[in-house]
């Protein structure tokens, strides 16, 4: 198990390196730089700034300096927000992003799995069909459309929930962003669970379990659910990354002070350090999440442990 996890970690190193390299150069390909504004800076000031951030060196030199710093755990300075380094800004935004993202993740799994099981048990009957319609809606309507609709209905018309803002983390402030973030994943997870459950319930070993005289409840809890969860678990890795990228948009729409907002601002301002830092951080997060998913997978299915 340990060697399995270790192997997985090692294989992610080249992936990480390729992604950083690609990101670094693509960012530089885009026209403009961090110090170009509507009002150009005086030449001398600009040159000083560029020297400070090593921007006057060749691109390759800059690349190796960045990699060198990164290896020492230094994400470098922010080019725009000089008062904080990239790591500091990320740490400020992180709790908000983790709370919203984590809640959405948990909600997606719980609601998705339950809805999927219900759908499989009531296959092609009313609950299944209703769920199917809801799920289709969740899948096809993009979150930047769902969010304003919910804001309109629950915020402005019914006045049940605040339209945005963090509000000291009050639950009412969390409901809408978490729901919007979770919706497509609830949909997808419930589809996956439903399909897997239907397949498992037709398998030979469920027939064996029935022939042993087990009650339906025992059949479901002990014999059916675990194998039906394997496709769901393998979706959780990608789901985590969708959630992170989705949080960029959702945080902006709901005005939450998470990492997403920094990222979007940084991209607009060509804040090279901040954009790269966020990308590296997200990648690390996703790699760790995928590792956890693989371990859970091995726990669910003894056959992959070898």
């Amino acid at each position: 198990m340990l060697s399995f996890a270790l192997k997985r970690l090692l294989t992610t190193i080249p992936v990480l390196w390729i992604a950083i390299t690609a990101c670094f150069f693509i960012l530089r390909l885009a026209p403009g730089g961090p110090f170009d504004g509507e009002r150009p800076l005086p030449e001398a000031v600009k040159r000083n700034l560029e020297a400070h951030y090593n921007l006057d060196k060749s691109l390759i030199e800059q690349y190796f300096i960045y990699l060198g710093n990164l290896l020492q755990g230094d994400l470098g300075p922010s080019f725009i927000n000089q008062d904080f380094s990239v790591s500091e800004q990320l740490l400020i935004g992180l709790p908000y992003t983790l709370i919203v993202g984590g809640l959405a993740f948990a909600l997606s799994i719980i609601v998705g799995v339950l809805a999927g099981i219900a759908g499989s048990l009531y296959r092609n009957r009313l609950p299944d069909v209703a769920l199917g319609a809801f799920i289709l809606a969740g899948l096809v309507i993009p979150n930047f459309l769902v969010a304003p609709i919910l804001q309109l209905v629950f915020g402005l018309q019914l006045k049940w929930l605040p339209v945005g803002g963090w509000g000291e983390g009050a639950v009412t402030h969390l409901v809408l962003p978490v729901t919007v973030l979770a919706l497509p994943h609830v949909a997808r997870i419930s589809r996956l669970t439903r399909g897997a459950m239907i397949e498992v319930m037709h398998s030979n070993y469920i027939r064996t379990a029935r022939s042993k005289g087990l009650s339906d409840m025992r059949l479901l809890m002990r014999h059916a659910i675990k194998p039906a969860l394997t496709p769901v678990v393998s979706y959780l890795g990608p789901a985590a990354s969708y959630l992170l990228t989705g949080s960029l948009v959702v945080e902006t729409i709901f005005g939450l002070p998470g990492i997403g907002r920094y990222f979007i601002n940084a991209a607009l301002n060509r804040d090279y350090g901040m954009v790269l830092g966020t990308v590296v951080f997200y990648m690390l997060l996703i790699i760790v999440l995928n590792l956890i998913v693989d371990i859970v997978y091995a726990w669910l299915d003894p056959r992959v442990r070898h």
Partner: peptide, 27 residues
Amino acid sequence: KHELNTLRGNRIAMIFQDPLTSLTPHL
């Protein structure tokens, strides 16, 4: 069904053709 469940596996039992798929893999 609950009565049937007290009989099958207990008074009447069944062996199936494919031993590779007839046992629950994760138990």
